[in-house]
Each structure stands twice: as C-alpha cells, then as structure tokens.
Design a protein around this nucleic acid. Structure first.
Lengths: 196, 196, 196, 196
DNA sequence: GATGAATGAGAGTTCATTCAT
DNA sequence: AATGAATGAACTCTCATTCAT
C-alpha cells in the first residue's frame, strides 16, 4: 500500500493538505477531503489508515524536505549573516513549495507534539532552535549582530515572522519567495527606520 | 440570564478562554470547560446560550478593550515613529492582559470572519490595517522610514510578529510587556545587524 | 458514573445481556441495545464508556457471583461425590440467575481472553479447571470414581455439558435448576444404561 | 463460475472454514479469508457470490456428509444401545473430518436458522432430534435405558456434549475419534461413579 | 444555579461488494 | 484468475444542546 501508485497517494495528500490548511485539522471532516478528491469518505481508507496518518504523512514529508534544504545551508560553512540570509531564503522557498503543510504545521504542531506518533515534531523543533539560535549567537560573538539584543527573544521573533507568512502567502502571487526573503532580511537586519 | 452575577460570568469566560487557547476552539468540548469550572456540562447553559456565544463574548470583550487603547494612541497625534512605538507597546500590554483571547483570536479569526455573528472581526481587521499601514505610509512620506521597503509586506510582518508572541508569552515571566516591546522595536526599527 | 444510580445501570446491562445472548456480541449493534432499552444509541454512552465495557461489566459481575457460590462449595470440605453434586447444582443455579451472561460467556470467551481487559477470564478458567479436575482426581484416588476413565476428557465433557445448558434453558420453565441438576448428576454419575 | 476448478474451490472453502471457526463468522472479514488464501479480497468474488454463500457451502457440504454416515447407522437396524454407540462414534468421526464446519455450526446455526437460505439447518435439526430421541425412547421402552430419566433432557445433554467437543478437539492429537467416543460412551452409559 | 439523563446530528472508520483492467 | 480502486451502508462513538427536577 505504501509503494504502489505513489502518484495517487500524493494527489490525495495534496488535496487533504489544502483542506486541512483552509479549515483546520479538527474542523476538517474526512468527508470534506473525500468531496474535494471526488470520491466517497470510505474510499480514502483504501489509501490511508486514518485521518491522522494523512496528517502525519503531510507533515513528515514536508519536514524531510525542509531539512534537506536547511542541512545544505548549514553545511556550507557560511558566516552568520550569510547563514541567516540563506536560512530565511530557504524558508520562504519551502513556504512556496509546501504552503499548506507549513500552515498546518503552524496551527497544529503545538498539540501534536504530545502524541507519540508525532514525536519527530519535537525533534525538528529542537534542531530548528539550535540552528537559528546558534547562528544568532555566533553573529553576536563575532560582532556581526548587535550585542544588546536578547538573543532568545530575537530568535522567537524571527522564527515566527518567517513561518507565519504561510498564512497569507499565495504561490504564484506578485512576490517570489526570493523577493519576500530579500525584503524581510532587509527589515530584520537593517531595520525599517532611516539611518541618521 | 444575562444580568445575573456578572462576576461568575467573567470567571467562567476566563476559564473557557484558557481552555480554548490551550486546546483550540473546535477541540475544546463543553465538558472540558465545565470540568475546569467545577460543574457539569449542562450547567454552563444556565449562563450562556452556546459554546459559540462564549467565544463571541471572549473575543468581543478583548477587541473592545484593545480598541480603547489603540484609539487613545491614535488620538494622541504623535509622529510615525512614536506612534508605531506606542502601538507595539500597547499590543504587548494587551497580550499581557488577554493572553488567552489573543491566542484564540490568532488561531480562529480566519475561519470565524465568515460567520455573520463575528462580522465585527472583519471590521476590526480593517481598522487595524488602516491604523498600521497608515502610520507606516506617513513615516515613509516624511522620511522617518525607509522608502525602499514594500510597505504592505512590512505591515504584514510587523502585525504577525507582534501577535504571534501571544503563543509563547507567559504573563509573570521574566520579560515585562514593556521590555518585550522595547526589544522588538529595537529590532524592527534599527535592525539586528551592527551598523558600519 | 460508576456509583450513581446503580439501578438504571443494572437494568441497561440486563437489557444488553439479553441482546448479546440472543444475537451474539459482534452482531449486536449499539442501536439494537438502545432500541431494546427505549433510548437512542448515543444515550448509552452517558452510562457506559463503550460497548465493550458493557460486555466487561456483564461478564465480570457474573463471574464474581459465580465464584462466591463455588468458593462456598469448595470451602465446605465435602467428599468428591458431594462436591461434584454441589458444583453442578450451583452451576445450574447460576445459569438460572445469569442465563444471558452464561450464554455470552460460552460464545465469546475464547476470543475475549486475548484482550488484556478480559484477562480475568483466563484466571477464572484456570481456577475452574483446578476445582473440577481436582475434585475428579480426588474421587478417583479414594475410589469414588472409576479409575479407567481419562480424567481430563471427563472434565471436559462434564464442564461443557453443564454450561451448554444455558443455550436452551429458560428460567421459569418446567424444570427448576435443582431438578435439572439432579437429572444431570444421575446421568453422569450412574449412567443412562440400566445396570445388570 | 461454479464448475471451474473444483479443487481450488474446496481449498478456498477449507481456508474460509478455518477462519470462520477461529474467529466467528461475523468477526471474519472477507479480507482475512483472502489473506489466508494468499489473494485480495475482491478476488474471492470470482469464486463465490458472497461471504454468506461460502458459509452456506461449508455447512451444507458438512451436513450432507454427516447424514450419509447417520443414515447408514440408522438403516443398520441395530438395538438402542448399539445405535447410540454408533451415532456417537460417527459424530466424533465427523468432528475429526470437519472440525471447522462443526465449530461453525455450533456457534452460528441458532441465528442462521431464521434465514430462508439456511432452512435446511432446521430440517437437519428435526431429523437429528428424531433419530436420537427415538433411539433413547426405544431404549427406555425395551429396558435398555433407565426409565426414571427425563428423555428430552437426556437427549439435550448428550447432543450438546458430543458436538461441543469440536471446540477443543484437535485432529491428530493424542485421542483418536474412536477413543474419544469410547470414553464418552462409557461415561454416559455407565456413569463415572464406581458401582457398589 | 446546578444536576442527571437524554437527544440527535454527525464524526471517523469498517467492510461486503463491484468492476474495469 | 486476480488486482486495484472505489462504493455505500452501517457501525461505534462524540458532543453541543435540552430539560425536568
């Protein structure tokens, strides 16, 4: 069941992800997903064990791809400023590719972490914090970033702003992910105030 | 039914708000609220018409108070930079006072807007956008803020970062709302990079 | 929930037991039980956690009472023949009192033993075998029962015949439990053939 | 569909019978049967019209063979004691040959009798009762069996004990059907108590 | 003000069955 | 002969809500 006809599976997961993102996981009934996929509710169970396993597959697929990108950035040995830049750009690219999954992640991960099945969310969060916080701290240490900022607070602001963009971003809109990343980095790195 | 013992009412709403914020509105059963309040599910209906009406009262109370604060700031006739500063500070104060309501608002408002009963959410969003976007635009016009930024994008980033803080902020923690506001403003206005 | 209004609970369990006995546990829908009880299916869940917990309570209540009777017999210190007689009589009394539960036990216990929740069924079976087999062996040892019989085989025959009676026995019919016990004992102890 | 490859058909029915016997007809899904047969659920429908028709074929095949044996015994013109002996022996031989079918019959026949399709079960039960009860009555009349027994009760006990053996009998175990029959007859005819 | 019991709509899921390939 | 995908009815269970007491 896992290997056969992976295209149909992917289609159905994409459909489910859209509905989850639009209505929330709890408010999404299996019937709504089936409607969107043009089949009956029971038919989904030929492809998936449960509603939860659809969610699981959506999130784990997304996180796997996200970490491929992040790991490449982190392995490149860039300086703090370039690393932050690359992480932000990569993040907006992931939002571009997995908008629905990111939106679902944002909304549901806090509750899901408690379920054993979604333990990998906690792992991912830890790695995420380590990557961002570590880069910020390196930047403070080498004089790239201001020393008078609370690094932990800064991390939270940066993290949230990047990902919350999934809630309004529409792929194919007027801003490319790279353009959004550039604007965002300009704001966060240099500030919105005009320099004296 | 609406007039009797307004304190009990407020207590129950505070309880409900905590549970809604912790578990999400849909995932919160009336029974959980009743458990938290030390009564049986049916008993809540002596105080409130429905689960939805509790949510309504929580959100409208919050927004009413929020706009009292915002309107005072906007009426003060401050310059763009001071206005942004005052709005941010006021926002973190609201988060401090209505953490649960803000978290609920963040998570549920997108879906609620479509319900006639929650039409005031859309009104509030419009006023909100007008206040922030207007201030940013005034600041660009008078040279306070950089002209090369996409104002609309900047507005979205600022708006989201401020409010998403409700998801991790804990009243009584190590940071006062004013301290958080100062750090946040420092980051957004001046950037995190050291100036050459 | 467990202590309040125990009469209603007992009524509902009696109803459920009748339906389980008549149609089999699997084939019994919660709706059928509710119909028989004059309520809607969902209402049963105010009283019980699940269909399975109804079954559990039916069987454990029955076994508890059964063992009260058996233990009294076993503690009386009777000889093998009298013990067998008393156990048989007690068994038919239990069938008279818990006909439905016995029928359910007969039909479902083999599958239920595997579920952790019904582990007590296995315990009971072991005690049961020990009581009957031990008495038969004592009787063979002291010359009460024939030495040329396979005791284990005899135990199985006796055990099954007694309990399978639940499938045709109707309380209030023409035979009292004591009368059936007497006939049954006469057959098993002395045989149906006329003695030469 | 019915005529092609009768061996495969028999194999599949044997497989289905094992699963029905082990798990119960209702609890047996068509998928479980297909798994055990090494095919997919839908494929079974090439061979059989429905799950019920498999059950039907299993039971009717068994009963046909059973009655061949019984009829031979009844036609032999033996005395009551020898007839009972031959019927018991024949019954245990049937259990040896059709253990699964007998177990299914024991568990399901009560419910199936009501379905028109399984009307032959009722016929068989009537013939069965006539054969056994008639033999017992003949035996009482000619002084072979004790006159003080309730014949109907005795019939029930004998009938049930014989067939319920299918629930614990394992072909190829330490007791041959003939050995079990001998032990059983010894118990029922002469009793387990030592004669004074 | 609160309880206990019930309602009824709808949720996720299962499963016998169908059918084009 | 067998597969893969789908159907549709029915199932167990949940939950917001009602209401007599």
């Amino acid at each position: 069941m896992t290997t056969a006809a992976p295209e149909r599976r992917r289609e159905l997961l994409a459909t489910a992800a859209e509905v989850f993102a639009a209505q929330g996981y709890n408010a999404t009934t299996v019937r709504k997903i089936a409607d969107a996929a043009g089949m009956l509710a029971g038919s989904l169970y030929y492809h998936f064990d449960s509603k939860e396993s659809m969610l699981d597959e959506i999130l784990s697929t997304f996180l796997t791809e996200l970490w491929e990108g992040y790991d490449a950035v982190l392995a490149a040995g860039l300086g703090p400023r370039a690393t932050i830049g690359a992480l932000v750009t990569e993040s907006f690219r992931e939002i571009d590719r997995h908008r629905a999954a990111v939106a679902i992640y944002q909304r549901e991960s806090r509750h899901l972490v408690d379920l054993p099945r979604f333990g990998y969310l906690a792992d991912s969060q830890r790695r995420f914090e380590k990557a961002w916080l570590g880069t910020l701290e390196r930047g403070v240490a080498d004089g790239t970033f201001r020393a008078d900022l609370d690094v932990r607070l800064t991390y939270r602001f940066v993290r949230d702003t990047v990902w919350v963009a999934a809630s309004w971003y529409r792929p194919g809109g007027q801003h490319s992910p790279e353009e959004i990343a550039r604007q965002y980095l300009s704001m966060v790195l240099d500030g919105i105030a005009v320099r004296d």
